[in-house]
Design a binder for these strands. Structure first.
Length: 719
DNA sequence: GAACGAGTTTTTC
DNA sequence: GCAGCGAAAAACTCGTTC
């Protein structure tokens, strides 16, 4: 038997050559896997890449051998000990099983390819891939029938499918469509119709239109085309099944974008993701919140289907312990405990039990940020230093956008033979400028040269503020909000919105109000400043003593010049923004409220001005109470954290944190008010809808879309 | 043994 | 006709220091 397979292996060497793209993906069921493997092998063998892959493969084989040897040495006593450890852990994990939540995972179908087809209907029905000759980002389902898939080099894809059409990648376009799925086209049009300085108003307004947010205000977008939603409350509140919610959401996405998506519903995130892949494309799969159903589902599920188990882990588990399905994780639990680390054991046993995250999204802290570029291998040092400088510049730009500063810099190098090296340095100070990054990176590179390289990368980690992550997440959401306005302009360039021509979406937060202050506002201000004050007056003071005015707040001031020098925009209620002026050393404030669902919506910023006391709850809602300020100049009024005025940056970050917290609360609050907000917004969106129809009519995107329900028959067969 | 730093590996899209 | 295989993030491992 072994001899037969060995001789077969010698006759068909490609069978042992595995790459990421020889693994099956959705839409590749009927593919002749052996043919694909053979072509991939034939086109790769002999190359430097291939040799490196073989080295890696040999290393993994060695690892497998070592682990097998360790298993062989385990005594009966060892095994009995590890079985006890495993059983205890399984019991603990089982006890913590939570079947109370209903999670939905949405995954757009061949997202980039679908967007390109929507923009260019002539691609429909033809095999196409997004990417270049060197690498593909994705392929449509027609191309997948030939074995073409994401992460495959274009030249191999060409061989597999000679008629393959290549479309260059366009992230800006995909971001625009991604925003539509999350926010809804209505919102985009509302945004376009609105003058730029009403962005703050729209910030609230948009909440009622978010497609995903309608179902879960705290939904987690894990990439441009994927998101997790906790639909427990929606199901309970509306008395409908999770499957119905999934259908409705998918229909909503389709109506908004013309793109199809697949959904998976399960008691936890891990299983929901697995489920969304089952009836791809354009389908859904519901796994009931029932322990028996979960166990049955898991029993035959291949481990590779689980997110987090890739080529290597699958290889190790299969070849060392003969684990192929999730259920077998439990059967081999003692061996797992003998061979792996605590965190790995927990993960594997959880997989075996069908457990996954069930909690609402926690703050996702970014731990690192990096930039890297591949080029033709060279040992030309001048060229390499130039590449390093370019990479430092790119990373510094990203760091600046994210408001991040780090103190560990890692240089990544890939040699001409594909060997990867990293060299790191931890610094005394936090840095983010391209000069600083380049200065330290150059030292790291210098010690490695001379060397023939094909890739240089830089990574920053050890950020100065862990809390930045929360603000970061919220900032990203807000960034998307503003960016979508701009990208929608680009995508539909026929509009005459005031903000057209704005090319900088830099978004900052007012340290006092915590509200975003968009540089677009500044542009607007400069362009239309006749009645808004002198745009050249940029010499604004910064009141760090009270932790109050950043330059950005000053930009805001300029817009509301008629109010005062220190007016601040503040969300008072879902439909009201209050522009508040605070006199230093006084509790008196001036405020101007603008109702935007009612008669005051629009450009009219000339609303009534009134003087109120900070204690006047009839005008300033409870949100006002949550505005942080520095008690005695150094203590946060909300949490008591003490930060002296000299800690300007930390104060900024602290406000970002509270702002993010507050926004989350607001979002939740708005969701519960959704129906009434929706009703009120209908009037306002009528014009937008009309315009939208007009635009779509002349747009190639207005292709013929089959009703999405036609596709549901497939998923109704599930379970 | 906890914390940290450096380097490597793995996964994902 | 020929050569040609990415980018980003995080987890993991191992060594050192206190």
């Amino acid at each position: 038997m072994g001899e037969t397979s060995e001789s077969a292996g010698a006759a068909r060497p490609w069978q042992s050559y595995h790459t990421v793209y020889t693994n099956a993906k959705a839409g590749m069921d009927g593919v002749d896997k052996e043919k694909v493997q053979r072509i991939v092998y034939e086109m790769s063998k002999g190359s430097k890449y291939f040799e490196n892959e073989e080295r890696k493969e040999a290393f993994i084989r060695q690892k497998v051998e070592n682990m097998r040897a360790r298993c062989a040495k385990l005594t009966t006593m060892d095994m009995s000990h590890y079985q006890m450890v495993a059983d205890k852990r399984i019991f603990e994990l089982e006890a913590a099983r939570d079947l109370s939540k209903i999670w939905l995972h949405v995954d757009m179908d061949a997202f980039y390819a679908a967007v390109e087809t929507l923009e260019n209907p002539s691609l429909k029905g033809k095999p196409m891939a997004v990417g270049s000759m060197s690498m593909l980002s994705t392929a449509n389902y027609e191309a997948r029938k030939f074995g073409v898939r994401a992460a495959m080099p274009g030249f191999i894809a060409c061989k597999l499918c000679p008629e393959l059409i290549f479309v260059p990648i366009d992230f800006e376009k995909y971001t625009y469509y991604s925003d539509l799925t999350r926010k809804g086209r209505y919102f985009i049009f509302e945004l376009e119709l609105c003058p730029r300085f009403q962005l703050l108003v729209d910030l609230i307004y948009m909440f009622s239109f978010l497609v995903f947010q309608k179902y879960d205000p705290n939904f987690m977008a894990t990439s441009l085309d994927e998101a997790y939603l906790d639909i427990t409350e929606v199901c309970k509140g509306r008395g409908i099944s999770s499957g119905e919610v999934a259908e409705e959401l998918r229909r909503g996405v389709y109506e908004e974008t013309g793109l199809t998506c697949s959904a998976g519903v399960a008691p936890n995130q891990l299983l929901a993701k697995v489920c969304s892949d089952i009836n791809k494309p354009n389908g859904q799969f519901v796994l009931p919140n029932d322990r028996m159903a979960v166990t049955t589902f898991i029993s035959s599920l291949p481990i590779r289907k689980i997110g987090g188990i890739g080529k290597v882990t699958e290889h190790i588990l299969r070849d060392v312990l003969e684990i192929h399905t999730c259920e077998e994780m439990l059967q081999k639990s003692a061996f797992l405990c003998a061979l792996f680390s605590h965190s790995s054991i927990d993960f594997f046993l959880s997989v075996g039990l069908g457990l996954g995250k069930t909690d609402s999204p926690q703050t996702k802290l970014r731990k690192s940020m990096s930039s890297e570029r591949t080029f033709s291998a060279t040992n030309d040092e001048q060229f390499l230093y130039q590449k390093l400088a370019d990479t430092a510049e790119m990373l510094a730009n990203d760091m600046e956008k994210g408001g991040l500063r780090g103190r560990t810099l890692t240089l990544k190098l890939k040699t001409a033979s594909f060997e990867v090296r990293t060299r790191a340095v931890s610094l005394q100070n936090y840095i983010c400028s391209s000069q600083d990054i380049l200065s330290h990176a150059s030292k790291l590179l210098k010690t490695e040269l001379p060397l023939s390289l094909r890739l240089i990368g830089l990574r920053m980690s050890q950020f100065n503020d862990e809390k930045r992550g929360l603000a970061d997440r919220m900032q990203k959401t807000l960034m998307n909000f503003f960016t979508s306005g701009v990208s929608s302009e680009k995508a539909m360039s026929n509009n005459n919105s005031i903000g057209s021509g704005v090319d900088d979406n830099h978004l900052m937060f007012d340290t006092k109000t915590g509200l975003p202050v968009d540089s677009q506002i500044h542009h607007l201000d400069a362009k239309h400043s006749n009645d808004l004050g002198d745009p050249s007056n940029s010499n604004q003071s910064s009141d760090t003593e009270h932790g109050i005015f950043s330059n950005d707040a000053c930009e805001m001031e300029k817009i509301h010049e008629p109010l005062s020098n220190k007016s601040l925009a503040k969300v008072v209620a879902p439909n009201v923004i209050s522009y508040v002026t605070q006199s230093q050393g006084s509790e008196m404030v001036e405020s101007q409220t603008v109702s935007f669902f009612g008669q005051s919506k629009g450009n009219n910023m000339e609303g009534g001005k009134e003087r109120v006391s900070l204690t006047d709850k009839t005008i300033l809602s409870s949100n006002q109470q949550e505005q942080p300020f520095w008690v005695d100049g150094y203590k946060c009024s909300l949490c008591g954290v003490e930060l002296p005025p000299s800690f300007a940056e930390e104060r900024q970050e602290h406000f970002d944190y509270h702002f993010a917290e507050r926004l989350q609360k607001m979002e939740s609050g708005h969701n519960s008010r959704y129906p009434s907000l929706k009703q009120r917004s209908i009037c306002n969106s009528q014009i937008a809808k009309e315009n939208r129809r007009k635009k779509l009519k002349s747009s190639p995107k207005d292709g013929k879309h089959l009703p999405i329900d036609l596709f549901f028959a497939k998923s109704s067969q599930n379970f």
